[in-house]
Design a protein around this nucleic acid. Structure first.
Lengths: 215, 215
DNA sequence: CCACAATCTGACCAACCGGTCAAGAATTTT
DNA sequence: AAAATTCTTGACCGGTTGGTCAGATTGTGG
């Protein structure tokens, strides 16, 4: 009797375990890099025996690949805002807000992504060549349209995108440096707001963005 | 007789070997990260036996530390331009040019630096807390002065500096992504010029920089 | 309730890595 | 020229790592 309380089904447990491992892996990969991370440390962070990791993910590379792919999906999601907007003030402004929020909430993911690209994108080169190229061209088209409509200055869309990526992701990738320059403390709520406002103000003014409903 | 042609003195050879090792190390650390780099691979790239590396640099950490410290010194050098300028148009403009040039000529160094900071600055935390903090405060003072003199908008100097660092270093740290988005080719001379011009135009306009000799 | 499949895990292994060392080669000093 | 010092290098070593595996455990379908 005392039927053991089957709190979770097998499928649920599998999903939970995989999620647990992926979260631990993201943290460890972010802190130590792919080469510096060890399966043992990831296992310890996840609170599971090392052999269990290899049951769900056959190799360290497979686990790493899954982490990077998840991050990439998240990365793309922030882009939807771009299209739905009538003009650069709303579109780029919201995009900056969204990416700054990602930098704040998921700095580990941003770091893993940066590390992957910095080392030549050994595992997601195909994504860069297909999905990212398509995405980039789509947004460049949007920017060109805004320029044609006179909603902003004729800046090079490509370098504008690079500037947006660089500036927003900097707050995640270099969070340690920023903390050190902030007296060792993480940015406060107000400081994050100021950061977002500064970035938006400089870039939007820099590209001569004009509000949609002209007065 | 036939005194062996002592083409180089012992000191010269030592300096040459150290330089050779440091260059190889910078490249390998940039490509593989600290954890992924191996002394054997660095030795191969340098064209020396592994044991020889340990003669000049006792440990992998010592070699890495030397690489990072050299990069940091280079990093600081680009700052002199900042002070000598009469206003933001010249100062920040020249600073962007200088840092973009570093990104172009020494992308490996920038990557090693980014990697070091991303992983919590394990070996140069003391530099961040002393030299970098001092340097940053000095430049923020310069920017505040420019603001007081009415040479630019009252932007937050800290976030302006972050934006300058992020944008310029992005071209080195994410060079692989940029190449992929450029059809697989490195940026041409013209494309580098366009990149510099775009960054300068957007930022200088974004902060409302006004030329020194007002008309 | 039982057979079967899925999950879990401690123990183990081959490969690799940073680092050592002794012995020799080259160069400078005496 | 010989003694002393600096440099070079192949061979080696202990420790760690990614990955394996057999057997125990747990959940599931009949």
């Amino acid at each position: 009797m005392t039927r053991p309380p089957r709190s979770t089904s097998r499928q649920d447990r599998r999903r939970e375990s995989e999620k647990l491992i992926l979260q631990a892996a993201e943290k460890v990969f972010a802190e130590a890099g792919f080469g510096g991370a060890t399966m043992q440390l990831i296992a310890d962070v996840a609170g599971l025996p090392k052999a269990n990791l290899h049951y769900y993910f056959p190799t360290k590379e497979a686990l790493y690949r899954q982490v990077v792919e998840n991050i990439f999906q998240n990365w793309l999601k922030a882009a939807d805002i771009f299209d739905a907007a009538p003009g650069p003030v709303e579109g780029i402004g919201a995009y900056i807000d969204a990416k700054m929020e990602i930098s704040r909430r998921h700095p580990d993911g941003s770091k893993v992504w940066a590390s992957e690209v910095m080392h030549g994108a050994p595992v997601i080169q195909d994504y860069l060549e297909t999905t990212l190229v398509d995405w980039t061209q789509g947004r460049m088209e949007v920017i060109r349209r805004w320029i044609e409509e006179g909603r902003m200055d004729p800046v090079d869309p490509r370098h504008l995108l690079y500037m947006l990526w660089a500036t927003t992701q900097h707050y995640a990738d270099f969070s340690h440096q920023i903390e050190t320059l902030n007296g060792g403390d993480p940015l406060s709520e107000q400081q994050w707001s100021a950061a977002k406002a500064s970035v938006k103000a400089i870039i939007l003014k820099g590209i001569g963005a004009r509000p949609s409903n002209e007065g």
